[in-house]
């Protein structure tokens, strides 16, 4: 999953750094609002899941690890 998430982010916004190590993808300006929308759409599309977290969802999109956790918990919730 981690590799796929990195690929998705890389495809949305070309980042010349090790994406897996970045904290603050949004707050540090790596992803703009177009990027955030695309990221949510791509994650939901690829993993066939509705991301949970409500209005707080954006706080879980700041790093690859937190995105993976969000996708996993969203998948568990939709399966459960």
């Amino acid at each position: 999953m981690k590799d796929k998430v990195i690929n998705i982010i890389q495809e949305i916004e070309d980042i010349d750094e090790d994406i897996s190590k970045i904290e603050g993808l949004i707050t540090n300006g790596y992803l703009d609002s177009f990027g955030v929308l695309s990221l949510v759409a791509e994650l939901e599309n690829f993993f066939s899941v509705k991301l949970n977290g409500g209005s707080e969802v954006i706080k879980h999109l700041e790093s690859v690890d937190s995105i993976c956790k969000l996708v996993e918990s969203s998948m568990e919730q939709s399966n459960g």
Binding site: V36, V40, A41, G54, S55, I58
Partner: peptide, 14 residues
């Protein structure tokens, strides 16, 4: 509409 859809997709509007 994109702005509203952004808020809807991220669950911000209840």
């Amino acid at each position: 509409p994109s702005m509203i859809i952004y808020l809807l997709n991220l669950g911000a509007i209840s």
